[in-house]
């Protein structure tokens, strides 16, 4: 859509498509649709050890499940938590959709949604999601992952990135106020908040919303920490915003108080090389 001033906005119409023709679909169309749907299915791949125990009907023993959605949230865990040798990768989820790159290597797909388990305390599970999960895959992803977890005494913490442009407030936001944290939790959650609750009319969408919906109807304790940031791509200030959310978990997760510069550099610098304007 172009506005009066000529800039192009990516708004989509709230009007909905009609599906008058759904009964007259021919067989070939139907087959293509079926195949596409199969391809879009979410698959979980567990390590041999875990899948062995699941085969015998056991679910993953889990008391803390920490899910990081988005580059900053995921990199925050990489820098502050996963640097300790105390973590084992135990599996990954593969998601194919319209934003998956056609030629992407196996490695990038495998690293886009990974599960880690703590060695000392195997009931602490971490998941980092940096890939795009499409709207029709969110529900399925959540169902499949939570189907593998033991529900009793499960605590879910979701860290999620969001652009500050999506934050609505009556007061004008000064540049200095971002990044900041907002929280949203299910009815079963009874912890003390570390930041302000997400104000109406702001909402949470995507994977954090799917997880909250699932936990609300199944009465699981879950809390989402949404970080509103004005920087695109991983950045150390935004990452640090998540700190209070995890220090609360105290016993089960040890935060590295001062991560080494090398590690920070590794995760932050990758975005700087994209521009070739001033080589």
């Amino acid at each position: 859509m172009a506005t009066f001033f000529g800039e192009v906005l990516s708004v989509y119409s709230r009007a909905v498509e009609d599906d008058d023709e759904d009964s007259e679909e021919n067989e070939e169309d139907e087959q293509i649709r079926r195949e596409l749907e199969e391809k879009r299915e979410v698959h979980l791949h567990w390590s041999p050890e875990v899948s062995e125990s699941m085969k015998s009907g056991n679910k993953l023993q889990c008391s803390e499940f920490i899910l990081a959605v988005g580059h900053n949230a995921a990199r925050f865990l990489s820098v502050y938590v996963l640097t300790s040798p105390n973590w084992d990768p135990v599996g990954h989820a593969s998601v194919w959709n319209e934003r998956s790159r056609a030629v992407s290597g196996q490695t990038s797909e495998e690293s886009a949604c990974v599960f880690y388990r703590q060695k000392d305390n195997p009931s602490v599970l971490i998941c980092q999601v940096t890939c795009f999960v499409a709207e029709d895959q969110l529900f399925q992803w959540t169902e499949k992952v939570f189907d593998c977890l033991q529900h009793r005494e499960l605590n879910v913490t979701v860290l999620s990135d969001c652009s500050v442009a999506e934050y609505k407030t009556a007061d004008y936001l000064h540049c200095s106020s971002a990044p900041f944290l907002r929280t949203l939790h299910t009815g079963a959650y009874s912890g003390q908040p570390v930041c302000r609750s997400l104000e109406q009319p702001n909402i949470v969408t995507g994977l954090p919303a799917a997880v909250l919906n699932h936990c609300e109807v199944h009465r699981i304790t879950a809390v989402v920490y949404q970080c509103y940031s004005d920087v695109i791509g991983p950045d150390s200030v935004t990452m640090e915003t998540y700190k209070p959310a995890l220090t609360k978990l105290g016993k089960s997760i040890q935060l590295d108080p001062s991560p080494s510069k090398d590690i920070l550099n590794k995760f932050v610098r990758t975005t700087n090389i994209q521009s070739n304007l001033y080589i």
């Binding site: 709207e135 969110l138 949203l184 949470v204 969408t205 995507g206 919303a209 919906n213 989402v224």
Partner: peptide
């Protein structure tokens, strides 16, 4: 109660 279904795009918010 809720209607919990995969037919709707997930969203969540505080009390509207």
């Amino acid at each position: 109660g809720h209607i919990h279904t995969d037919c709707l795009i997930p969203m969540a918010g505080n009390n509207p």
